[in-house]
């Protein structure tokens, strides 16, 4: 992992969103989920995205991570117009720049922890030894080096989520996108995950955008953004 001091990066926008609109078609009618919102997120920031259920938090996160395409507006990540990328280049871009952390962990149940973490590296040119070295480093960073050969169902929820985090950071992306990462965990495991995210932000300079509706989790962020009825409003973090 590249240690990147937060101060140097401060002031640089890593995410730049202008007039972003996202419509979903449900049968014959069109539903506008995001209604022309604009947003800047600084390099090295830790942002909590809050809002009621169905307000479009996941939608916004997925757009930033290039999992979906906006209906209109522009979306720039690290100086690149993500909304203009073709589907193929979008996949490669995600693999290089974004780490996703999901509420339900989304690990492959048949693969061991280390094979799960290795998945994103299969798309690189690294040989097996290099891959395993990186996997070991990522698992050590999340404190699970002794669980490398365990399958997801042999792990606790908190441990599964830490494997999920190891998988998200193994390619050393600058941007970590977390969709309710503690939503399915008890308070104690949730706190451990938040500690880990804090450390990744503070010590490794990862820019983190975390969707949550837990105010306790949002407290850890430097900045809190509220999303409601397709509009953004700033809150104190």
């Amino acid at each position: 992992m590249n240690a990147m001091p937060v101060e140097v990066a401060a002031g640089t926008s890593i995410v730049r969103i202008r007039d972003l609109v996202k419509d979903y078609r449900r049968g014959a009618e069109t539903v506008r989920v995001l209604d022309g919102l604009s947003l800047d997120i600084q390099q090295g920031d830790f942002v909590a995205l809050m809002g009621p259920s169905g307000s479009g938090k996941s939608t916004l996160l997925n757009l930033i991570g290039g999992l979906d395409r906006p209906t209109s507006g522009t979306l720039e990540v690290d100086g690149l117009r993500v909304d203009e990328l073709s589907e193929g280049s979008l996949g490669r871009w995600r693999a290089d720049h974004v780490g996703f952390i999901f509420q339900m962990y989304n690990l492959l149940p048949v693969l061991t922890a280390e094979r799960n973490v290795e998945l994103p590296l299969l798309l690189t040119n690294l040989d097996r030894e290099q891959r395993m070295r990186r996997v070991a480093a990522a698992l050590k960073l999340v404190g699970l080096e002794h669980r490398a050969r365990h399958r997801p169902r042999e792990l606790s929820g908190g441990q599964e989520q830490r494997v999920g985090i190891a998988r998200a950071i193994v390619t050393d992306p600058t941007l970590l996108l977390c969709d309710e990462p503690t939503g399915d965990l008890d308070r104690k495991s949730g706190d451990e995950i938040l500690n880990l995210l804090e450390a990744l932000n503070a010590e490794y300079g990862k820019t983190i955008i975390m969707v949550t509706h837990d105010p306790h989790a949002a407290e850890r962020a430097h900045r809190v953004i509220h999303l409601d009825k397709g509009m953004l409003s700033e809150g104190s973090g």
Binding site: G65, L67, E87, G88, G91, R92, R94, A95, D96, F100, N106, L108, L119, P120, L123, R167
Partner: peptide, 14 residues
Amino acid sequence: TNELAVLKTLGFSN
């Protein structure tokens, strides 16, 4: 379905 979507999220191409 979910696993395949995760693989795609990680950058596996169509």
